[in-house]
């Protein structure tokens, strides 16, 4: 039992957890900002910019507004980071020391919902009107993008006949992977809150969304949590839809490259589109996301 705890701890703190995923997440963030800058004809931020941003935020004081619940206000970013860290532990990256859990894909989906719930609660805990609007938008957007996201996961799980990530990853390829992968890709920009679906933190409309009252180290934890969320989601895509090869090093390299390609695609989409309204995004996700979901589920259930 204690050996299991040690292995979970190692997975949470080192690989595929915080110590190695944080630099990867910062690299993802830098890549998105750099790609956006190049597409706009700018030079863009230096390579270490996300790391500098995080260190600077951690080294600042935190301002906690009067009249908020201090315990909840401080706990929320920590809960968000811890859930995403736990989600990293569940992803079966090669060399992950954590013991496998039965039905871990269900756990992963729940853990990935935690940062979203935290954002919604954070918007209301901060007691800013803009934060509350951001929280409501976040809650409604999660109803929209989770349709194709969950349908993609359920379709491949049904295809493999198992809710274990390792079994799903090892299942033979079929048409379901095409349709489910498409549904996953449709959901990705909204999950990462990038244009045209940056509705929940629309910086020119509602200032900063649910994070508006957060400052200093607490804001830094939210930024780190977001960076890790990018890593988990791209890794999850790779695990579900990109076959593993025999060698662990090759598998990791291929999956990381796939993740970076996804990030570049999201950045390209973000740089070339403007933000849509909530109703338009909702309509898009329930119409086209719904169509992709239906195709994925049909392909998953009819073998």
């Amino acid at each position: 039992m204690s050996e299991d705890l040690l292995r979970y701890g190692l997975a949470f703190l080192v690989w595929p957890g915080l110590l190695l995923a944080a630099p990867l997440g910062w690299f993802d963030l830098w890549l998105m900002r750099k790609a956006t800058a190049r597409l706009q004809g700018r030079i863009g931020p230096p390579f270490l910019q996300p790391a500098f941003d995080f260190l600077k935020l951690v080294g600042k004081r935190a301002v906690i507004p009067e009249g908020v619940n201090r315990t909840a206000f401080v706990a929320l970013p920590i809960v968000s980071l811890a859930s995403v860290g736990a989600a990293l532990v569940v992803v079966p990256m090669p060399g992950n020391p954590a013991p496998r859990l039965p039905g871990d894909v269900v756990l992963l989906v729940y853990l990935l919902e935690m940062p979203v719930l935290v954002e919604v609660v954070a918007g209301f805990v901060g007691r800013s009107v803009y934060g509350e609007v951001g929280a409501m938008r976040e809650a409604l957007m999660s109803l929209a993008y989770n349709l194709p996201f969950l349908a993609a996961v359920i379709a491949v799980a049904e295809h493999a006949g198992s809710f274990d990530l390792a079994t799903i990853a090892a299942a033979p390829f079929g048409p379901v992977h095409v349709f489910a992968g498409l549904a996953f890709l449709v959901a990705l920009p909204a999950r990462l809150k990038t244009n045209p679906f940056s509705i929940a933190e629309a910086e020119h409309e509602i200032v900063a969304g649910a994070h508006i009252e957060y400052s200093g180290p607490l804001l830094g934890l939210f930024e780190l949590s977001h960076a890790l969320e990018i890593v988990v989601l791209t890794e999850l895509f790779a695990v579900l839809f990109v076959p593993a090869s025999g060698s662990a090093a090759v598998t990791i390299a291929v999956w990381v490259v796939v993740g970076l390609a996804l990030i570049l695609g999201v950045a390209l989409l973000a740089a070339t589109t403007a933000r849509v309204r909530l109703a338009q995004a909702f309509r898009f996700y329930w119409l086209w996301g719904g169509a992709a979901s239906a195709a994925a589920l049909v392909a998953g259930f009819v073998r």
């Binding site: 230096p46 270490l48 910019q49 790391a51 500098f52 941003d53 260190l55 600077k56 080294g59």
Partner: peptide, 9 residues
């Protein structure tokens, strides 16, 4: 490191 981060961000 913190001081440099403050200048760079």
């Amino acid at each position: 490191v913190l001081a440099v981060a403050r200048r760079r961000s």
